Amino acid sequence: MDQYEKTIIPLIESMYNSFTPIEKTIADFFIHNTQTIDFSSKNISRQLYVSEASLSRFAKKCGFKGYREFLFRYQQGFGENQPVITDDSAKQVLNTYQELLTKSYALLDEQQLDRIVHILSTKKRVYVYGRGSSGLVAQEMKLRFMRIGVNMESITDSHIMKMNSVLLDEDCAVIAISISGRTQEVMTSLRAAKTRGATTILMTSRREKEFQEFCDEILLFAVKEHLENGKAISPQFPILIMVDIFYSRFMELDTFHKEALHDYTMDILYGGR
C-alpha cells in the first residue's frame, strides 16, 4: 500500500456526529470537495459563510494545532486515489472497496496496534461482543485467534453479554464491535465490563467523546455512507480489514510459536480426513 497517501478525510468522517452545525458545514466541504482551489482561511470562510475563527476551532477539534496544520495535512492527500464512479455496477463495488482500503490505511495508528497486541498477549481471557454483521466478525475473530493460542470467546446474544459481566475482572479484555457506536446491547455491556475492571476496546467507525469514559482503546475503521445498511457492500468488509491488520501484527510476536500452534490446530481439525 506504499502508493496510498494519508488522507485526513476518514478522520473528519469519524468525528462528524460530534460537530456543531457550522462545523458540519465545514466538514461537508472538505469531505466532498474535488477541486483544487484557494484553501486560505479567508477564501474558505467567504465561500462557506463562516468565520475564520470557526475554521480554526474546527481544525483544533480534529486534533490539529490550527487551520494551517489542518490544511497542510488535507492538501497532502487531496486528490489522491479518488474512486472512479462509472455506470458499471461491478466497477462501482470495486471502487468502493478501493476507497475503503485507502481510508483504512489513513486511519492506521501503529502505536495503538502495538498496545492492542500487548493486551491480547497478556490477558487470560478475551471476549468479543457484536450483533448482526458485527457478530459474524466476532465469530471470525474467535476462530482465527483461537488457532494461535488466544483464549478468545465471541458473544452475539445480548442476554449472554449481560450475564458475562459477572465473569469479568482485570485479567480479561472485552472487544466490542459496533459500526455506529450505538448498538445499545453492545455498548451497555462494554460499559459494564469497564466497571468490572476489564480492559475495554471498541471497534467502530465513529469517534465520540463519551466513548473515552469507558474505553481503553478506540480502534477506528473506515466508513462509507449507508455502509451499516449493507446497501453497496457487506458492512463487515472494513471491520475485517482492521482485524486482519492487527492479527498480522500479533503474529509478528513469536512468529515461530504462533505458526506452530496454528499448524497444530489445523492438524487436529483436518488431520483425520
Results as ranks from 00 to 15, higher is better:
residue 1 M to R: 06
residue 2 D to K: 10
residue 4 Y to T: 04
residue 11 L to S: 09
residue 14 S to W: 00
residue 16 Y to E: 02
residue 19 F to R: 04
residue 20 T to W: 03
residue 24 K to V: 03
residue 24 K to Y: 00
residue 24 K to R: 15
residue 25 T to F: 00
residue 27 A to S: 15
residue 27 A to Q: 07
residue 27 A to I: 08
residue 30 F to R: 11
residue 37 I to T: 06
residue 41 S to L: 02
residue 42 K to P: 02
residue 44 I to L: 15
residue 46 R to T: 12
residue 47 Q to H: 12
residue 49 Y to M: 12
residue 49 Y to Q: 14
residue 51 S to H: 11
residue 52 E to I: 01
residue 55 L to P: 13
residue 58 F to L: 09
residue 61 K to L: 08
residue 65 K to Y: 11
residue 67 Y to W: 11
residue 68 R to N: 12
residue 71 L to R: 15
residue 71 L to N: 14
residue 72 F to A: 14
residue 72 F to C: 07
residue 75 Q to F: 06
residue 76 Q to L: 12
residue 76 Q to V: 07
residue 79 G to T: 05
residue 79 G to P: 09
residue 81 N to M: 04
residue 88 D to G: 01
residue 93 V to A: 08
residue 94 L to P: 01
residue 95 N to L: 00
residue 118 H to G: 12
residue 119 I to A: 02
residue 121 S to E: 14
residue 121 S to R: 10
residue 126 V to S: 05
residue 128 V to Y: 02
residue 129 Y to W: 08
residue 129 Y to M: 09
residue 131 R to C: 14
residue 134 S to W: 00
residue 137 V to I: 15
residue 138 A to C: 08
residue 138 A to G: 09
residue 138 A to R: 03
residue 139 Q to P: 00
residue 140 E to S: 12
residue 140 E to L: 09
residue 141 M to F: 04
residue 143 L to R: 09
residue 149 G to Y: 01
residue 162 K to L: 11
residue 163 M to E: 07
residue 165 S to G: 04
residue 172 C to Y: 00
residue 173 A to P: 11
residue 173 A to V: 09
residue 178 S to K: 03
residue 178 S to W: 01
residue 179 I to G: 01
residue 182 R to I: 02
residue 184 Q to D: 10
residue 187 M to F: 01
residue 198 A to D: 03
residue 208 E to L: 10
residue 208 E to G: 01
residue 211 F to M: 06
residue 212 Q to N: 09
residue 222 A to W: 00
residue 227 L to M: 05
residue 229 N to A: 13
residue 233 I to F: 03
residue 234 S to D: 06
residue 237 F to M: 13
residue 239 I to F: 02
residue 241 I to G: 05
residue 241 I to M: 14
residue 243 V to M: 12
residue 245 I to F: 02
residue 246 F to Q: 04
residue 250 F to R: 03
residue 252 E to A: 13
residue 252 E to R: 14
residue 254 D to C: 10
residue 259 E to I: 11
residue 261 L to G: 07
residue 261 L to H: 04
residue 265 T to Q: 06
residue 266 M to K: 07
residue 268 I to M: 11
residue 268 I to L: 14
residue 269 L to M: 12
residue 269 L to Q: 11
residue 269 L to S: 05
residue 271 G to M: 05
residue 272 G to L: 08
residue 272 G to S: 10
